[in-house]
């Protein structure tokens, strides 16, 4: 474990917590893409499938973190699609999730380190996570704005994988550990946030709201 990965995981936890708090406190999921949250839930379930296969005692933080990610993302989907369904902005959350799931699944079968079920599920989860934020970014571009709290969520969510890139550089240098699939997907994922990062740093930090040119 290195500092970059630690802060990456903390940033990821913060993102999940910020979104849950936003929906719970405002009792509304306006401006939140339910599809992105569904895709994240699929990512966690397919990536941490080992939790379901052998229920080893919860002796280490990794297992606890995995359980937190899975339960928090499923609970977020429950809030969006059931509890606060009336506030779900289905019209603007219109990016076709199948256009992300099918290519990720296809690519996972073609490019993977080992052709076995667990590895392919993990690879699928990595590829899907790289593009899972697209429906959320698409929704913001359609509505032309993002609530400040949603911007903080996106910043934390984008920072998590950016910090993981630093973690991979660290591990390459000190542990000569390389996982090309995770690195390439992580770089693609972080690049998708660049536009948002620019808006966040130039606007939200100064207390302005993000409003995209309609």
């Amino acid at each position: 474990m290195n500092i970059f990965r630690l802060f990456g995981d903390l940033s990821h936890l913060a993102a999940i917590a910020i979104l849950l708090l936003k929906i719970w406190k405002t009792r509304s999921c306006a401006g939140v893409s339910g599809k992105t949250q569904l895709l994240f839930a699929v990512c966690f379930i397919t990536r941490y499938i080992d939790l379901f296969l052998h229920f080893v005692s919860l002796y280490n933080t990794e297992k606890v973190m995995k359980l937190i990610y899975i339960s928090a993302s499923v609970f977020t989907c429950y809030l969006i699609f059931f509890k606060f369904k009336a506030t779900y902005d289905g019209n603007h959350d219109s990016m076709r999730a199948e256009f992300l799931i099918v290519p990720a699944a296809g690519l996972a079968c073609l490019i993977n380190t080992k052709f076995d079920a667990i590895e392919i599920l993990w690879t699928f989860s990595i590829y899907l996570e790289a593009v899972a934020i697209l429906p959320q970014l698409f929704l913001i571009s359609k509505t032309g704005e993002a609530e400040t709290i949603t911007s903080h969520y996106l910043f934390a969510q984008g920072s998590y994988r950016a910090l993981y890139i630093l973690n991979w550089i660290y591990r390459y240098h000190y542990e000569s550990h390389v996982d090309t699939i995770a690195i390439v997907a992580g770089v693609v994922q972080t690049i998708l946030y660049c536009d948002f990062f620019y808006l966040y740093i130039t606007k939200v930090v100064k207390g302005q709201k993000i409003v995209l040119p309609a």
Partner: peptide, 10 residues
Amino acid sequence: DIMDEIKDEL
């Protein structure tokens, strides 16, 4: 064994 498949990162 399947457990050694498990990645060491989240």
